[in-house]
Structures are given as structure tokens and as C-alpha cells.
Design a protein around this nucleic acid. Structure first.
Lengths: 184, 184
DNA sequence: TTTATTCGGGAACAATCATTCCCTATTATC
DNA sequence: GATAATAGGGAATGATTGTTCCCGAATAAA
């Protein structure tokens, strides 16, 4: 069942919510129509489950990226690098469910809107935490503002997904080197 | 006719392409179904026309913002500020057609994908031009890399629209002050 | 072995979609 | 002033959508 949900995630990422018919879903999930409606109330419920699965998986991936860093600054750098890598190439073209949901559904679907909002805040808090770690261990200068820098970095990460979906080439090392100036 | 197209722009910005029925379009444009199909070949053609109208209008707005600046650095700062203002509040919730198209259509619609890609490059070139002006007039330090900085700033602007659509509050002065560190 | 019960599959359904067709005014042409 | 041409409006159409219903196989209970 979780593997079916993973396939649903993939379809929703590629095509978005409205362009994904339940025919597309059943084909991708390798389930019949009836079976999908036995497991989920409706298409909206499938999407919500896919959204949750996607965000928990992504959370793990960025946490792992952060873990490979000796201090706050390095952990933050690794997170940014991880974001660029996920926004590049075929994975980037596949898209981000959070960005997709924000753009396509946030304004018209209050339930999805609330989840997107919560997820962005979670991500922002995670980055803010890394900045605070850097302030504490001395790898980030004292005068850096935590909230403002974290919010701008969220903008960068979300923007990376948009630009990656549009197939502009992204060079991780170079972009991150520029972005790290925000911690000067 | 142009005023009808403006209304179409608004609907597409708010709901995206797939969630906008031609019933929504006719209601917004105040035209009957037949009239829409006399003016445009199909729904896709309406969207393309709306997209072009939106981008030319936005181009003008950011050009005007840039014009109110004494040197390259100030012009760039005004452009960023303008982007934040357009990503805030009700205008921000309305969304950006370029970001929306990139996320919803870029991967599945080659025609729209090409236009989105071209528009992003145009925006990037505009920003790169401002950076070069700043390098020439001395308001931006010599060691700033034009291409990398411009690409990251495009990520910031696109990310602002995503975050604004998700209704996170954006403080223009503070965010731009942080972003201007990229020109250090 | 026989009988319930659950589970997956797919045909049938109603609603909605984009699109076409035709009718009616209004304007332009002769 | 009569007629052709155009522009706009809305009903009809066929395809596609999300959803429900029912059937058959497999498993569990008796």
C-alpha cells in the first residue's frame, strides 16, 4: 500500500492535482478504481495522503543532509546543497509537491492551504534552528538575523524548485556559495 | 477585448489552468461561450494570450521600479522591493502566472514550457544587466559574479511568489536588506 | 465441507468539461 | 433602402471526469 502511495506521489508531482485523473492514478498505483475508493474516500483524500508521505520523506532527506555537517554553518550549507540537487535534472523536473500544492491549490482549497502553510513554517523553523546553532557555535556571525534570514532562505529553496521545474540549469556549488553570503 | 483578456489573466492567476473551466472564463470575461471561441481557437490559446499580456505588463512594472534608482545597486534594490510588494497580501494571493505555469504546465505542455523558460531567462538577463550597471558605476563590488548572483536572485523572486501564495507574511524592507548581502 | 466475510477488480452512472453549431442582432456595402 | 457580412449569444454534443455499485475470488469461521 505504501508503495502504491509512492507511485501516487510521483504522478501528483509530475502532473499536479487537477491534471491527474483517477485513471492516471489507478494506472500508476496498479490498482483498480474500486480498490482506490476502498482505500481512500475520494481523490482529495489520496492527494492528502500523498502530500503527507512526500513531506515526511523530504523531511528525512534534509535532516540527513544537515547531519553531515560539523557546525551550524556547514549543516546549513549541506541543506541548501541538498535542495539544489533535488531541484536539478530529472528529479527537479518531477517537481515538489509542496510548491505545486501552494501554487495550484493553496488559494482555492483551505485544507491543502493549511497543510502547505504548516509545512513551510516547519521548514523555516528547521532552517532557523540551524542558524541558531551556527550563532551558538560561532560559525555564523552574531549580527545575522535569524527570522529574516530563514524566511529568505525558504524563498530560495522554493524558488529553486520553480526554476528547476522550468529546466534552467542549476550549479549547486556556485549557487550555494553565493547564497552563503547571507550568513556574512 | 484587452479588458476581457485582463479578466482572463486574473482568473488564470487565481485558479491555474486546469481548474479554470471555460464557464469560469466566460463569466469573468463577460462573454458568451461562442464569443470566446470566435476570438480564440481554444482554451489553450486564451491562456497563451493571457500569459503574454501578463508578462508584458509585469515587465513594465519592474522596469518602472528599476528606473527609480540612482545607480545599479539602488535599481536592483527597487526591483527586489517591487517583487516583494507584488508577492504580499491580496496581490500575492492572486499569484504569478509565470510561476503557476512553470509548476502546473511546464513539464506536460512544451509550448507553455518554452515560454516560461524564455520569460525566466528574460528576467534573469534584466537582473544581470542591473548588476553590470552596478559593477560599472562602482555601487556593486568588483568580485560579485554576475551570472550566479542573477540566477540566485531569480530563485528568490520566484520563491517569493510561492511563499506569498501560501500566505506567509513578507516584510519588504527586512527581506530585501538581507538579500542585498548577496551584492557584498 | 459449508458458510460468511473481506478484498480487489471493473462495468455503469451522473456530472462536468471543452467544443461546435446555429440563431439573432447589428453593422457595413451596394 | 435592401442585402450581405459580421459579431455575439446560448443551446446541443461528445468526450472525460469523479464516484458508485456489483461481481468474483480468496480467506476465515463454523
Amino acid at each position: 500500500m505504501d508503495t502504491a502511495l509512492d507511485r501516487a506521489v510521483r504522478v501528483f508531482r509530475e502532473r499536479g492535482y487537477h491534471a491527474t485523473s483517477i485513471g492516471d492514478l489507478t494506472a500508476a498505483m496498479r490498482l483498480a478504481t474500486g480498490s482506490v475508493y476502498k482505500a481512500f474516500r475520494d481523490k482529495h483524500a489520496v492527494f492528502l495522503a500523498a502530500f503527507e508521505r512526500y513531506t515526511t520523506l523530504r523531511q528525512q532527506q534534509t535532516s540527513n543532509a544537515a547531519a553531515r555537517g560539523a557546525n551550524g554553518r556547514e549543516r546549513l550549507r549541506n541543506v541548501l546543497l541538498s535542495y539544489v540537487e533535488h531541484s536539478r535534472g530529472s528529479e527537479g523536473r518531477r517537481g515538489c509537491l509542496v510548491v505545486g500544492s501552494a501554487v495550484e491549490l493553496s488559494a482555492v482549497d483551505p485544507v491543502v492551504g493549511a497543510r502547505v502553510n504548516a509545512q513551510l513554517k516547519t521548514n523555516e523553523n528547521f532552517i532557523a534552528g540551524l542558524i541558531r546553532e551556527g550563532l551558538a557555535d560561532g560559525s555564523i556571525p552574531r549580527h545575522v538575523d535569524v527570522e529574516d534570514t530563514a524566511r529568505l532562505m525558504i524563498c530560495i529553496t522554493q524558488g529553486l524548485r520553480v526554476v528547476g521545474k522550468a529546466r534552467l540549469p542549476l550549479d549547486g556549488e556556485r549557487l550555494v556559495d553565493v547564497a552563503m553570503k547571507l550568513l556574512a
